[in-house]
C-alpha cells in the first residue's frame, strides 16, 4: 500500500501543526506566558530586597561585615559586577537568568536568586 494519497493525513498534520502554533502564539498574545514575572531576590544580613528582572538597574549592597557588592540587573539577567570580597567567586559566576539559579558571595554573605515565573519543564518528562 502507498502511504500517500489520503486526505485525512493532511487534516491530521494540519490539526497538529495548528495546535503547536496556537499553543506557541496564544500565551504571548494574552500575556500569560510567564504567568508570574520573575524577580531578583537579594538576601544579606537580615535584609531581603526584591527587584523585577525585567527592569534594568544597579543595586549596591553594603553588608554589616563591611563588604560592598554591586549587583547589575540588565536584559533579563542578573550578575555581580563588583565586589570587595577577597576571591571574587561571585563575579566569576557570571550572569543568571533562569528561575531557581543563584549567585552567592559567601565572604560578604550576599545571596542573589531568581524567583517566580514558570518552572522549567525540563527533566520532568521522560
Amino acid at each position: 500500500m502507498k502511504p500517500m494519497r489520503h486526505p485525512g493525513d493532511a487534516v491530521i498534520y494540519g490539526i497538529v501543526l495548528m495546535a503547536a502554533i496556537l499553543a506557541f502564539v496564544c500565551p504571548h498574545l494574552t500575556g500569560r506566558a510567564g504567568d508570574m514575572p520573575r524577580t531578583v531576590v537579594i538576601t544579606y544580613d537580615d535584609t531581603r530586597l526584591t527587584f523585577p528582572l525585567e527592569e534594568d538597574c544597579t543595586v549596591p549592597v553594603t553588608t554589616a561585615s563591611g563588604h560592598t557588592v554591586m549587583i547589575r540587573i540588565a536584559d533579563g539577567h542578573a550578575a555581580v559586577t563588583e565586589s570587595t570580597c577577597p576571591d571574587g567567586v561571585c563575579i566569576r559566576t557570571g550572569v543568571i537568568e533562569r528561575t531557581g539559579t543563584a549567585i552567592a558571595c559567601v565572604p560578604a554573605g550576599v545571596l542573589i536568586e531568581i524567583e517566580g515565573g514558570v518552572t522549567d519543564a525540563d527533566a520532568i518528562l521522560g
Binding site: 498534520y13 497538529v16 501543526l17 495546535a19 503547536a20 502554533i21 499553543a23 506557541f24 500565551p27 506566558a33 504567568d35 514558570v118 518552572t119 519543564a121 520532568i124 518528562l125
Partner: peptide, 22 residues
C-alpha cells in the same frame, strides 16, 4: 498526567512536543 502530578506549568512545553510528534 504531568500537569496533574507535577505542575500545570509543563504545558509550556506543548508546542515543542507537538512539533516533535509531527
Amino acid at each position: 498526567a504531568a500537569s496533574v502530578l507535577l505542575s500545570p506549568a509543563v504545558f509550556s512545553y506543548f508546542p515543542v512536543l507537538m512539533a516533535a510528534s509531527l
